[in-house]
Amino acid sequence: MNDQLYDLESLRFPIGEFQKPDCITQGNLDTWITAIECFPFKIKELTKNLSVNEVNWIYRPNGWKIKQVVHHCADSHINSFVRFKLALTEDKPVIKPYEEHLWAELTDGLDDDLTASLQIIEGVHARWVLLLKSFGEQELKKQFIHPATNKTLCLEEVIGVYAWHCNHHLAHIEQALFYKGQF
C-alpha cells in the first residue's frame, strides 16, 4: 500500500469481533435474522460487476481474495445451516468442524466465477431464514457442541454470530474494493 500505514487487526476485523449481548432480545434476533436474509442480495450487489482482476484483490496482507471470501461464505453458511438442523433434530449434537483455510485453497475456492457460490448463498439463505423465522423459545434454546473449542453453543447466539459473519465478510469485500487489493 505504498507507505500507507494500516492496522492489521482492523483490516482483519473491520467491524470488530462478535460481541454477544448479556441478554439476547427479540430485537436482537429480528436484526440478526434480517442481516442473514439480506446477505445474498448485498454480496451479489457488491460483486456483480467485478472483473477477473478485481475478484483476485485481497482485503488485507496475506488475506483471502474476494473470490475466496465469496466461496467461503457459501461453504460456511452451508455448514451452519446443517448445524442448525442437527441441533433441532438431535440432543446436543457434536458438530463436524472443517478447515476453512484449506477449503479456500481447493479448486472451487479459487474459481474466478462467483456464480455458483452466489446461487448457493441465495438458496441456503432462503431456506435458513424460513427456518429461523419459525423458531419459538424452544428452538432458540437448542444447542450443539463445537469440538474444536469444546464449547456448547445455543442457536440464539449462533444466529448473532452468523449475522456478524455476513457483515464481517461484506466489510472484507468492501475493504478489498476500497484499497483495490493493493496490500
Rank of each mutant, 00 (worst) to 15 (best):
I33E: 07
L106S: 13
G109D: 10
A126S: 07
S117C: 12
T152G: 00
S80N: 13
T107K: 09
K67Q: 10
C23G: 14
D108Q: 02
N56R: 01
T31N: 09
V82I: 13
V52K: 13
K44Y: 13
K85Q: 11
H72K: 05
N28Y: 15
N53K: 12
A116Q: 14
V82R: 08
N49L: 08
Q143R: 05
Q26C: 15
K92H: 12
P14K: 12
R12C: 14
I33S: 00
S51T: 15
T31Y: 15
L50K: 12
K67F: 11
L86Y: 02
T31W: 07
Y98P: 00
K20I: 15
S10M: 10
L130H: 13
L132T: 10
Y6Q: 02
D30G: 09
G63Y: 00
H77V: 01
H72L: 05
Y59M: 01
I58S: 13
W103D: 06
K20V: 09
K67C: 06
I24W: 15
Y98N: 02
D75T: 03
V52W: 12
Q143A: 09
K141V: 12
I121P: 08
E100I: 00
A116R: 13
D91F: 11
R127Y: 02
T89L: 04
E139H: 03
L8K: 09
V70Q: 02
P21S: 07
N56I: 11
H72Q: 01
A74L: 00
I36K: 09
P147K: 12
T47A: 05
P21R: 15
S76A: 10
K142M: 03
W128K: 00
I58R: 08
D111C: 14
K65G: 06
G109Q: 04
L132W: 09
K67G: 14
I121Q: 00
W32Y: 10
P14C: 06
G16H: 10
F18K: 11
A35K: 02
N56E: 12
F144K: 02
G136Q: 10
N49G: 03
D30Q: 15
V70A: 09
F135K: 01
P21K: 10
E105D: 11
I15V: 12
A74T: 01
I95G: 09
C38P: 07
Q26H: 04
C38D: 11
I120M: 13
K20L: 15
T149A: 01
W64G: 01
L131M: 14
L86P: 13
D75A: 04
P40Q: 04
Q119I: 08
S76Q: 02
Q119G: 00
H71Y: 00
I145C: 06
T89E: 05
I33C: 00
F81A: 01
K92F: 05
Q68V: 04
H146G: 08
A87Q: 11
G123A: 09
A148E: 12
N56P: 03
S76G: 05
